[in-house]
Simulated scan of single mutants.
Amino acid sequence: MAHLENARIVVFRAVAQQLSFRKAAEELYLTQPAVSLQIKALEEDLGVQLFDRTGSRVALTAAGKVLLDHAERVSVLLQQAEHAIAAMGGELAGQLALGASTTIAQYVLPRMLGEFLAGHPRVQPSLISGNTERIVEAVAQHEIGLGFIEGPSRSRDVKSEPFLVDELVLIVPAAHEWAEQARIPVEELKKVPLLMRERGSGTRHVLEMALERHRLKPASLTFAMELDSTEAIKSAVEAGLGAGFISKWAIAKDLRAGVSFRIVAVEGLRVQRDFLMIYAAGPEPQGLVQEFRRFVIDRAAMMRGA
C-alpha cells in the first residue's frame, strides 16, 4: 500500500528523531543534500526555521518541536487509516514498526514475525534492536509502535505486559572443573570470572537483583568483562574467558548441535524473568500493531505449552 504521509514530513520526522541530517539520509536511503533540500523547502513553506544548526550540532527550534508533536500524531492516524482500508479488503497491510532488546531480537521475535508475515504478506515490518533502555526510549518517543524487552521498565511513558517466561542459566567452558558437576553452591560464583552484559541491559539488571537476594554483592564478585550481546558472551565462554549467565532461549539450538560449553545448575539460584511487550502510555494500540500484539500473545502461549 502506498504511504499516505507527505514526503517532506517523513524527512522532517527522520531528521527530528535522529537530530542528524546524515543519519536521517541513511535511514531514508536518500543523499544528505536531498534531505537538506526537503527541509529547506518545508521551512520556506512554513516561513519558520525548524532546526538550529550550530556547527555539527542539530537541535529542534520551538517551531520544530511543535511540528514534530503534530507530525507524530498525524503519522499514527495515517497508519491507522492504511490498516483500516486494507482490513476492508479482508487483509492486513501497511508498516509495522517494532523494536526488541537484544536477546528477544535474536532468538524469539524472528520466528514469531516470520509466522505472522506468512499469513499477512502485505505487512511491511521494520525492527530496531538495542538494550532495554533503548527500546523503552523508542516506544516512549513513538519511533516504534510495539517494543519487546527483557527487564522491567521504570518509564511512566510506556505500558508493559508479560508475554513469555525466560530463565537465565549459567554456562562454563566444556573443559571447566564445574562442567561435570550436577550443581555448585552459590558461593562458588565468587571464585570464577563472570562475563556480564553491559549496563542498561535487562539481562544484567535481572541477574544482579537475583544475586543480591543471595547476598552476593557486585563487590564480592569478579566481573571479568562487559559484553553487548548474548552471542559475545557465548563466544567468550567457549574461549575460556569466564562463565556467564544467558537466556535459555539463546542456547536451544546450540545444545542440539553440540557446543564447547556446558550448563551448570547453581544451588538455590533460579533466575527467571518475564519478557515484556511495551507500548506508549495512553489508549491501547490499534490496527496492525494490535493485531500483531494479539498474535504474539497467542503464539507465546503455544510456545509455553510446547
Rank of each mutant, 00 (worst) to 15 (best):
L276D: 05
G64T: 12
G200V: 00
V136P: 05
A84P: 09
R215I: 10
I251R: 09
G200Q: 00
I149L: 02
R122D: 08
G200W: 00
V259C: 11
R262G: 12
A25Y: 07
G90P: 04
A301D: 07
L4T: 10
N6P: 03
A281G: 04
D228H: 04
T54Y: 06
V74F: 13
P185S: 01
A100S: 01
P33D: 09
D52H: 13
G151D: 02
Q17S: 11
Y279G: 05
W249Q: 14
D298R: 11
R111N: 12
A306I: 13
Q181E: 14
H83G: 09
A174M: 01
H176E: 04
D166H: 00
G200T: 02
L98K: 00
P152M: 08
P110R: 04
L96A: 02
T230A: 10
G202T: 00
I39Q: 06
G119R: 05
L207A: 03
F292T: 03
G282D: 04
V289K: 04
L77K: 14
V123T: 06
R197K: 13
R57W: 08
E180G: 14
V172M: 02
K217I: 10
E27R: 14
P173A: 04
R204P: 02
L170W: 04
I9T: 13
V48P: 13
K40V: 14
L117D: 07
A7R: 14
D52I: 14
M225T: 10
L30S: 08
L28F: 11
F245W: 05
F116R: 08
S36E: 14
F163D: 01
G119H: 09
I128S: 11
S160M: 04
D228W: 02
W178H: 08
P185L: 05
S260K: 14
L68H: 11
G200Y: 01
T54N: 13
E115G: 12
E5F: 09
A93M: 06
I149V: 03
I149M: 03
H83F: 13
M112G: 03
H120G: 02
T54L: 12
G147H: 05
R53T: 15
I135D: 00
R111E: 15
R270D: 11
A243Y: 05
Q95L: 05
I184H: 03
L68Q: 10
M112L: 11
D157G: 06
S153N: 03
A63I: 12
Q95V: 05
E291K: 06
E188M: 15
D228A: 06
L127I: 01
H205G: 08
L60S: 12
I149S: 01
E187K: 12
G287Y: 02
M209T: 15
S201R: 00
P173T: 01
H142T: 00
K191Y: 10
R215H: 15
M196S: 13
A34C: 07
R122W: 08
G55C: 03
G119E: 10
S153K: 07
A301M: 04
G258D: 04
